[in-house]
Write a protein that binds this DNA or RNA. Structure first.
Length: 586
RNA sequence: GCCCUUGUAGCUCAGGGGAUAGAGCGACCGCCUCCUAAGCGGUAGGUCGGCGGUUCGAGUCCGCCCAGGGGUACCA
């Protein structure tokens, strides 16, 4: 609807140019927007305000000329000039009624479009290190990423969902050692757990699994382990200690056995993450292993390419990428003094691989703590001859968990974190998804567990679902009373009975849905959709309270059942985009 | 220090150049013989952090200041 109005205005512009009223070189950037105030019609354009200056006219005078140039359209009943010079379009009521029929015919497809025209777009999200279970912060990225992906798919993009598994770094070695130490404790050895190890209970579970399957196969005496090891914190350096511990584990166990423990930890945690996300309604096309980049030689190849680009130099034994040449605040190390490539190097290779796979656009959804990473990543792509604007990074701010007024700590290391799994069980996956996505992602989010799990009216998800359930209930009532109900649209003459203010408001809101989906998708802002659904649900509840649908008059009844069925369709489509069910009853 | 981000109703937040700044919760007052009261109506509540600019027009854009949060590794 909006695009049709915009087209009318654009045509008027062309007419003005051919009529010699306007220079063809002036390409005004004008808006066509929904009005807030119904007395301003349905759509408003600011074109006259923009054109006033080049035309040397007062805005209202310019508006008159524009209005005269606008071709007539069956969906526009009349056009006003109002306020400082806005052009207001009043949509013919018949157009809304025809749209109602369209919604019922299109059903689950209402809101879909081909705006994306099959452009391929990769959305990488969550990508949490497999060193422990997902926490509530990851949950936000998961909900956000999956809804953004759904939205883009709905408007015609070819979407590829991907999870990048950081299974090659030092953190994974720390996990392997943590598992081994816990295992040794289960074997009966007396050890002090490394202060920099992973303290969570899940490490015990993995160790128990190892012990159950392999008994004492990997056991070494504590004296052997601690021999010639530096001191741990607080008396020594915890980083040095854990690195020495990793080296010791590799030495005592040998590469094969070390790898077994390493892989056991990785596999168990990854399976847990996958299961967790699955229950959360998040599914991926690809689980991409960082280690694959190491074994395939992609990282070495990538470093070689960087060298050839000329943006690399050696300093103090390390290899640096000259990211400052592309706007980063300083240069970054890609190969350390000890010969190991950095996480950044893997990431460059990974992103290079993404582009080589032919995606037109790449969206990375990162935790806000990674924001300093954006300039260097874009710099690397540019140095390697790619268009850095193909990469779009969205940052998801932290979630701060509250239990009532008490702030809950979330550090993975301390083991006191609140996991996504616990959250899902407390508040349900659906409520959690909705809560996560109802706020803009770039703002810190206070998630009050007690509020979210209270099944009260505070929870907007129930409000929306309840509207849907109420509509379905009306149709059940109709069936029980033996009232025949048409599934599809009814004649226009019947729909014309929908003339109350509330019905008019609902029709307008229903017509906005495709615009909301498109805007939410293109701006990566799912919260636009949640706000819309709340507004639609509210209008329905108002309508429900003031009108009876199952009335004697068959025509009126049919018309009303048509409009509420359309409301149900849109509520269901919108909820499904967020990954939430539209219940038949509550 | 430098970079990013946020400051809008008592609380949590929408609105990101347009016409009278909105929603939910909380508070207060009402509405079930009637398709689900997990609902609806009404009232109260604002110098849009501050100052200065840009223009026909500024919560919205720019500059400075104040205040929160984050980042600033040869960690991932």
């Amino acid at each position: 609807m909006k695009s049709k109005i915009r087209q009318l205005v654009a045509t008027a512009l062309e007419h003005m140019v051919t009529a010699g009223l306007l220079d063809a070189t002036t390409k005004p950037i004008f808006t066509v927007e929904r009005t807030r105030d119904p007395s301003h019609g349905d759509f408003a354009s600011n074109l006259a305000l923009i054109l006033a200056k080049p035309l040397h006219l007062k805005p209202r005078a310019a508006a008159k000329i524009i209005v005269d140039a606008i071709p007539s359209s069956p969906i526009v009943s009349h056009i006003d000039v109002a306020g400082p010079g806005f052009i207001n379009f009043h949509i013919d009521n018949t157009a809304f009624l025809e749209l109602l029929s369209e919604i019922l015919t299109e059903d689950a497809n209402y809101g879909r479009s081909n705006q994306g025209a099959g452009t391929s777009i990769q959305v990488e999200f969550v990508s949490a290190n497999p060193t422990g279970p997902l926490h509530v912060g990851h949950g936000r990225g998961a909900a956000y990423g999956s809804v953004v992906a759904n939205l883009l798919e709905t408007i015609g993009f070819k979407v590829h969902r991907e999870y990048y598994i950081n299974d090659a770094g030092r953190q994974m070695d720390i996990l392997a050692v943590s598992v081994w130490i816990r295992y040794l404790e289960l074997c009966g050895e007396t050890l002090k757990f490394p202060s920099n190890g992973y303290h969570g209970d899940y490490v015990w579970d993995i160790a128990a699994n190892l012990h159950r399957k392999h008994g004492n196969d990997y056991r070494h005496a504590n004296t052997e382990i601690y021999f010639d090891l530096p001191l741990d914190a607080p008396d020594g350096d915890k980083e040095q200690f854990i690195d020495a511990m990793i080296a010791k584990a590799k030495k005592l166990l040998g590469p094969t056995n070390y790898r077994k423990i390493f892989n056991l930890g990785l596999d168990i945690i990854l399976a847990d993450i996958r299961d967790d996300l699955g229950h959360f309604g998040v599914h991926y096309d690809t689980w991409y292993y960082e280690s694959g980049l190491v074994t395939s030689g992609a990282i070495d190849k990538c470093i070689e390419q960087l060298k050839q680009s000329g943006y690399v130099y050696e300093n103090a034994g390390a290899l640096w990428f000259k990211s400052s040449a592309f706007g980063d605040e300083k240069d970054r190390v890609v190969v350390r003094e000890n010969g190991q490539s950095t996480y950044f190097a893997s990431d460059i290779a990974y992103h290079l691989d993404k582009l080589n796979r032919g995606f037109d656009k790449i969206i990375d959804i990162w935790g806000a703590d990674h924001h300093g990473y954006i300039p260097r990543m874009k710099a690397a792509l540019q140095a390697l001859g790619h268009d850095p604007s193909k990469l779009e990074v969205r940052l998801v701010q932290f979630v701060v968990l509250y239990l009532g007024k008490v702030r809950v700590s979330m550090s993975t290391r301390s083991g006191e974190f609140e996991t996504l799994r616990v959250l899902r069980k407390e508040v349900t996956s659906e409520a959690a998804r909705f809560f996560y996505v109802m706020r803009t992602c770039e703002q810190q989010f206070d998630f009050d567990l007690e509020l979210a799990k209270s099944k009260s009216a505070d929870n907007p998800i129930y409000y929306i679902q309840y509207a849907h359930a109420r509509i379905r209930s009306v149709f059940r009532q109709a069936a029980e009373k033996g009232i025949a109900v048409e599934q599809g649209p009814c004649p226009l003459a019947t729909l014309k009975l929908l003339n109350t203010a509330q019905e008019q408001a609902i029709l307008r809101t229903l017509s906005r849905y495709p615009e909301v989906v498109e805007s939410a998708a293109l701006q990566y802002e799912p919260h636009q959709l949640t706000y819309y659904l709340q507004a639609l649900a509210n209008e329905f509840h108002v309508y429900y309270n003031s009108h009876t649908f199952l009335v004697e008059d068959a025509h009126l009844r049919t018309a009303r059942l048509n409009i509420i069925r359309a409301v149900a369709v849109v509520l269901r489509n919108g909820l499904n985009l967020i990954g939430i069910s539209a219940p038949e009853s509550m």
